[in-house]
Simulated scan of single mutants.
Amino acid sequence: MATAPVHTVLVPGLLCSARLYEQLLPAVWSYGGVTIADNRRDSTMTAMAQRLLAAAPDRFVLAGLSMGGYVALEVLRLAPERVTGLALISTSARADSPEQVASRREQAQAVAVGRFGELVEAVYPLLVDAANIARTDLADFWRRMALDIGPDAFVAQLTAVMGRPDSRPDLASIRCPTAVVHGTGDRLIAPENAVEISRAISGAELTLVPDAGHMMAQEQPGALADAVVELLDAVTR
């Protein structure tokens, strides 16, 4: 545990509410204050990052999962001096491919014609390790988070994700202690993205978690907590 408080800002992913981090909170809170960023109200990564910075203390550790990682990388572009440690979880530094953009536009159109609930159900099997698809607790958890966010905020988030830049050229400039954590069974964002990020950031610690897909925070919460605690320890040394 830190001898002086460390504030941590946790950034949820696409269509993920504050519930995403409920199992991580006790470990992080033992080091100091915790803020969960609000990324439901903006349609660009820059605006999401600016909202986060406006609400955060002067210095903080930053952790983001999936889209939360995209926001975190935008924060590092805007105010790197304020971030004392970084955890990039189940995420990528790449911009969307044309195929991903087309898929997200189809999702937005589905929402526009009232198929939000259908989309939430259809996405779930891609979010977990193949061995965990039958776990009704994970499916129910995903459904609750999606309903917390709702269709309007989801479309705004899709717009932000589609418009994000390629962050790979910026990775080498990151100087704070960094943890890169990814499930080996992630079929939404391949683990190769984590390897790419960790190689580009000097001193980054890569943790590949078996038996976990994109919902690693629920599939393997202990492994994620261990990686984040190790980061917090590095920040406070």
Rank of each mutant, 00 (worst) to 15 (best):
R41M: 09
A4I: 14
A112W: 11
V101Q: 08
D170M: 15
A63I: 15
I36K: 07
I149C: 02
P177K: 15
P125G: 10
S92V: 04
R19M: 10
L232N: 08
A27L: 10
V111S: 07
V228M: 11
G33E: 10
E196K: 13
D166R: 15
S17L: 12
L88Y: 06
A49Y: 04
Q50S: 12
G222V: 07
L86G: 03
L15Q: 10
Y31A: 12
G222E: 06
D42L: 12
A49K: 09
A56S: 12
I189D: 06
L171T: 05
L52W: 04
A153D: 09
Q220R: 15
S43Q: 15
D233T: 15
L53A: 04
G85F: 09
G163K: 14
R104L: 08
D129M: 09
A179W: 10
M145D: 03
G68Y: 01
S92P: 00
R143L: 05
L127T: 07
P191Q: 15
R77V: 03
I201S: 07
V75Y: 05
S17M: 13
M48D: 14
W142Q: 02
T207Y: 08
Y31V: 09
P57L: 13
P191V: 14
L25R: 15
V83C: 02
R168T: 13
A56H: 10
A139R: 15
V71A: 07
E99W: 09
V75H: 06
A112C: 05
A102D: 09
D170T: 12
V113P: 00
I36W: 04
A95T: 12
I197G: 02
T3A: 13
L78W: 03
T46M: 14
S90H: 13
T44A: 11
N132A: 12
L10W: 05
L88A: 11
R59C: 02
A122G: 03
V120S: 01
S17N: 11
G32C: 02
T8Y: 01
R143C: 00
L78R: 10
T184L: 14
S167D: 05
E192R: 13
V209F: 01
D38G: 01
A56D: 11
R40G: 00
T84S: 14
H182D: 01
L24P: 00
L126Y: 06
F60W: 05
P210T: 07
D170P: 00
D148F: 04
V75F: 05
E22C: 09
A37W: 09
A2K: 15
D38S: 01
T159C: 09
R199W: 02
A112H: 10
H7C: 08
V195P: 00
L206G: 02
